[in-house]
Simulated scan of single mutants.
Amino acid sequence: MNKSIVWLASYPKSGNTWTRIFLANYFANEDKALSINHADRFGFGDSAEPMYRKIAGKAIDPHDKRQILALRPRLLSAISTNGASHNFVKTHNANAAAFGFELIPPQVTRAAIYILRNPLDVAVSFSRHFGVDHAEAVERMGRSDYVTKSNEKFVTEFLGSWSDHIMSWSMTRAFPTLVVRYEDMLASPEEAFEKMLRHAGLPVDEPRLEKAVRFSSFEEVSKQEEEGGFKETSKVSDRFFISGTSGQWQTELAPALAKKIRKQHRKMMKKYGYLE
């Protein structure tokens, strides 16, 4: 089986979308910014319900987790053998097993890029995107059995806790994995995205890199969303691209909840420099 999949993995609201928009602009190499609503032409998401329905060749029940998981190996095999040397696949799934099915099979995996963000900021963005209060967001991020609910567009994703998620990806030896902090992407996007391209085994063209960074900037994507909307915007949120900065938690997250996050995720936060 062809190992062509490069996973773009992250916990929700950690910078995955920015990464995919950058890559789309890098691959498109146009003279103007690619529409944010066309970024998925250059990559796949492993939770889109229509893809599972296409593989099944018939109607499916997106709420039937076992049915979806049984179809997953066929879906990933189809992606990995589509003739491309690199297939970038977005996932929020943990690198784990669910109901006996391996979610991230090494036999189709070329490499993985794991995007990490301060969980204090994740909680704020998570709350806004999923339409829950901060306390509920923190509670979900701390659950080892946390899974998303399926709907007509997306099937269930198996996440686990924020800390479990990071460990599942960063500690694997089954395939090469690059861990990149969202905060470092903000500080030096050219350097961060260059590392991603090289890790995936792709050539780096410096002018093309600089242009793709510019075309995927927060100013550009937020302008596009304001003018034409963004199809990935949550139904319970007015905007997808809110600030493009780090540290929002300092003014938005209650001290008690920040303390709870630090207690629950102390080990991983300390490892990646998120504890003062």
Rank of each mutant, 00 (worst) to 15 (best):
K259Q: 12
H134N: 14
S144I: 10
H199C: 07
K54D: 10
A59D: 14
R72Y: 09
E102K: 10
L116C: 04
H165P: 05
S14G: 02
P119A: 02
P207T: 02
Y146S: 10
W7F: 00
G142K: 03
F158H: 15
N25L: 06
S243A: 13
P12N: 08
F130D: 03
K211V: 00
S35E: 10
F215Y: 12
E220D: 10
A9V: 02
L75K: 11
H63L: 09
M185R: 04
E152V: 14
R41I: 12
S77Q: 13
M1I: 10
D46I: 09
N16W: 04
P73K: 13
Q264A: 12
E220W: 09
S168G: 05
R117A: 00
T19F: 13
I166L: 08
Y146V: 13
A212T: 01
V221I: 13
I261V: 09
H92W: 14
S35F: 01
N82W: 05
M185T: 04
S4C: 10
H134V: 05
V204T: 10
A192Q: 00
A258H: 03
E152D: 12
E232H: 14
L34M: 02
N29L: 01
R198A: 12
E157P: 11
D64Q: 12
R198N: 00
Q67H: 11
I68F: 12
G247W: 07
P73G: 13
K235W: 08
N151V: 04
R208G: 02
A39M: 11
D46W: 01
E183Y: 02
K195H: 01
L120S: 08
S77W: 08
I242E: 15
Y11G: 00
E225H: 05
K259L: 06
R110I: 08
I113V: 14
T19P: 15
T81S: 13
V132M: 09
F193W: 11
R262N: 08
T19C: 14
V179W: 00
K3W: 08
N82H: 07
G247A: 03
N87H: 09
A174C: 03
N25S: 07
D121G: 01
V89E: 06
K231E: 15
A200R: 03
G57R: 00
D40R: 15
K65E: 15
M167S: 15
G131L: 05
N37H: 02
Q250A: 15
I79V: 08
